[in-house]
Every structure is written in structure tokens, then in C-alpha cells.
Design a protein around this nucleic acid. Structure first.
Lengths: 88, 88, 88, 88
DNA sequence: CCAGTATTTATTCCGC
DNA sequence: GCGGAATAAATACTGG
């Protein structure tokens, strides 16, 4: 499966480097985010509050989706209403 | 700080063993949980739905706490109403 | 909701509550573990290393060896140092 | 709400939106990384080991050595095998 | 038995 | 530097 001496080594190296390149990009963005917070702080805003707002806004749509998913599950589960058979 | 030959080795061993003992107990409980789900499944219930319910119920009080925490933060942050000074 | 549904609902509730009770217990143990690590830290031990040791001891020796073999293979493929010497 | 508060609100909104935009970008990159690992896996590589290699390369060699030194210290304290031979 | 998903664990980061 | 939140990684479970 993996031939250390052959082409697989090149493949492995390529994968690793692609990952590393992407992680670098990700780090740049993370730094940008920090810069935005720093700028906001410089304008008198409370960074902790801002982070809370961002994370709450992130969770909200997620929760809605989850509730809908649970509703779907319930609807599906109605075929198993009780151990002694289904209601209809 | 850590003397491998002295009493610290015993201390280290004691800590490690306490952790391992506790992890064992935790595993027993985890297995018990699995058993409950298995029993429920044997009674015709949909395990996936049950897990969803449990995790949602777990999150609910958490969310309330978080909302209150955000409110506290806001109240505290009111002293910094704008970048050009406070309103009064 | 029909009668069987009502019975099923009670049963479901009971299962859910058993799970929740067990999860609480599990959480208590998890907290105890954290406490032990905190105490160890207070005594000058390196918690990160302790965690690594605990997880090492948990693993089957065979798995560990196998994973290390793959690791060596990959490191060699990448021209990074292995047991037989480093490239520099 | 006074004028400065309104201005502050707009500013705050702008900061929040900038952060959210950047976090979206970050998420895209994170997904790309997952894709690369998935592709590597499809080519027969061991993803777990790949991740370990990536994180090894990220770390400063000095830190790594230091941590390994502590690890050896602890393993010896516990009577577990180190570089100078195993107890069995 | 593999793939995807959900939970749990480990690590990192940030503000205090 | 610590303690706690956020992120990343690893693991476990379920369904196909």
C-alpha cells in the first residue's frame, strides 16, 4: 500500500505540504480576526462581549436546524409509537 | 522539582493510579448508559431520537445560563457606551 | 394519544431519566479526574505529560508498536529522521 | 438611546460582521484540510499518523526535546521503559 | 465492515 | 501564570 521508496513517498509529501499550506492560510485568517478584535477594543468596545455575541449568533441557526432534525426524527419514529405496536 | 529517585516518584505514581481508578469508574458508568440505551432499543425505542432528547435537555439549562451571563456582560459594558466618550 | 402511546411515553421518560442520572454521575467522576490533575499540577508535575502517560498505559502495546512502525515508515518517506539516523 | 450610542451600535455591528465573514473563510479552509486528509485516506495513507507528523513539524525542535525529557523522567519514575532499557 | 455523525478528549488561546 | 472558553483531534456509535 505504501511504498516508502517509490511514488507513494512523493504522494505523501504532496499531501503533507498541501495540509501545511492550508494551515498557514488558516492562521493568517485567525490573525486577521484577532486584528479586528484589537481594533474594536481600540474603539472602546468590550472584546469579551463581542466574542459572546459572535458565538451566540453562530449557535442560533445551528439550534434551529437541530430542533428541526429532532422533529423529523420524531415524525419518523411515529412508526414505533410503543413496544406493543404502532397506533394505527 | 521532580526527583525521580525520591518521594516524588511515589507521588507521581499515586496521582496516576488515582486517575486510572477514576477512569475505570467512569467507564463502568459509560457502559451502564449503553446498557440503558440497549434496553430501550429492545423495547422498541429509537436510540438516536433518545440521544437527541438527552443532549437537547442537557443544553437547555446551559443556554439559559449563557444568556444571563451575556446580560451581565452587557450591563457591565454600559459604561463604555461609545468610542467618543460615555453618554453623560 | 392512544393508550399504548401513553405507556410508551412513561417508559421513554423512565429510560431518559436513567440515562440522565448516570450522566450526572459520570460528570462527577470527570470532575474528580480534573481535580486530581489540578492537585498534581499544584505539586509541580507536568499535567500534559501525565495525560500522555495515562493514555499510553491504556493502549494495547501492540497497537502502539504498529502505529510507531507506520510513523517510522512515513518519516523515512519524507526524508525525516528515523531510528537509523537523520538526514542532516 | 443617545446619538453616540447609535454610532457605536453601527460600529459594533460592522466589527461583528467583519469577524463573522473571516470566520466563514476560516471554516472553508478547515474543510479543505479535511478534504485533503480524506483524499490521502482514499489513497491508503494513515490519517492519524499524518496528523501527528504535521503537528511535529509545526513544533519547535527544542520544545519537543524538552517534553520528551520530562516524559522519560516520569517513565523512569514509574519504572516504565525508557531509552536505557525496559524492566522486563 | 465502512462511512458518516455525534460525543468526548486534548490542546490552544485569550482575558484576567 | 492561571483558569476557563474555543478549537481541533480522536474516539465511539449507528445505519447502510
Amino acid at each position: 500500500m505504501v511504498d516508502t521508496g517509490g511514488v507513494a513517498a512523493d504522494q505523501l509529501r504532496a499531501f503533507i505540504e498541501r495540509v501545511e499550506r492550508l494551515e498557514e492560510e488558516k492562521k493568517v485568517i485567525a490573525d486577521d480576526i484577532k486584528d479586528v478584535y484589537a481594533e474594536a477594543k481600540g474603539n472602546g468596545f468590550d472584546v469579551k462581549v463581542m466574542r459572546k455575541i459572535v458565538s451566540m449568533r453562530k449557535r442560533k441557526p445551528h439550534e434551529r436546524e437541530e430542533e428541526e432534525a429532532v422533529m423529523d426524527l420524531y415524525l419518523h419514529a411515529l412508526g414505533m409509537a410503543g413496544p406493543s405496536g404502532d397506533p394505527e
